[in-house]
Amino acid sequence: MAGRVVLHYFNGRGKMESIRWLLTVAGVEFDEVFLTTRDQYLKLLSDGDLMFQQVPLVEIDGMKLIQTKAILNYIAEKHNLHGKNDKDRVKINMYAEGLQDLMEMIMMLPFIKDPKAKLEEIETKAKARYLPVFEKVLGETVYLVGGKMSMADVLLMECTLMLEEKFVAILKDFGNVKAFQGRMTEFPAIKSFLGPGSKRKQQPDDKYVETVMEVFDIKKMPFL
Score class of each variant (00 low, 15 high):
R13I: 04
V209P: 04
K87I: 13
V212R: 04
N85R: 07
Y143V: 12
K69G: 11
E97S: 08
N176H: 14
Y208A: 02
N11V: 06
Y74N: 02
M184V: 06
N176Q: 12
V142F: 08
P132G: 13
M107I: 09
T36Q: 14
L35D: 06
R20Y: 02
V5P: 03
K136D: 12
Y95I: 04
G12N: 07
E77P: 10
E97N: 07
K207H: 11
M157C: 10
L144I: 13
D31L: 13
D47A: 15
E29W: 04
K91F: 01
D153Y: 04
L7R: 02
N85L: 08
V5M: 12
V133W: 03
F10E: 03
T211F: 04
Y9A: 04
L99S: 07
L109S: 02
R89N: 10
M51V: 15
K199Q: 12
K84E: 15
N85P: 05
I122S: 06
E214I: 13
I122H: 00
C159P: 02
L102Q: 01
K166M: 05
A26C: 11
M149Y: 02
Y95G: 02
H8N: 07
P56F: 01
R200E: 00
D114P: 02
Y74T: 09
L144G: 13
E120W: 00
M149W: 01
M213K: 13
M108K: 06
R200G: 06
F111S: 01
L156F: 03
A2N: 10
G195D: 14
L45T: 12
K15Q: 15
K172E: 14
V90C: 09
K178D: 08
E158C: 03
E77I: 10
A126C: 05
N11E: 14
A128G: 12
R183W: 09
D39N: 15
G12T: 02
F34L: 07
F187S: 11
K191H: 13
L72K: 06
T24C: 08
D49K: 13
P196V: 13
A117S: 14
P222T: 13
G182C: 11
L81P: 08
F134C: 09
E104W: 04
K69R: 09
E104D: 10
W21R: 03
G182P: 05
E210R: 08
F10I: 06
K220R: 15
V25R: 00
A152R: 03
V209T: 11
L7G: 05
W21D: 00
G83Y: 01
K220Q: 15
Q67D: 11
K178P: 05
L50C: 07
F52C: 02
S150R: 01
Y74D: 02
E59N: 07
L163N: 07
A189N: 09
F111T: 05
D217N: 10
Q202S: 02
D101Y: 02
D101F: 01
N80S: 14
L35R: 00
T24A: 09
L50I: 09
L156C: 09
G182I: 11
F187C: 08
K118H: 07
K84A: 15
K91V: 11
K172R: 10
Q40I: 03
L131A: 13
A128P: 00
E158L: 09
Q181D: 07
Q202C: 07
E140C: 06
G195N: 12
P188K: 12
P222I: 14
M221G: 04
E29K: 03
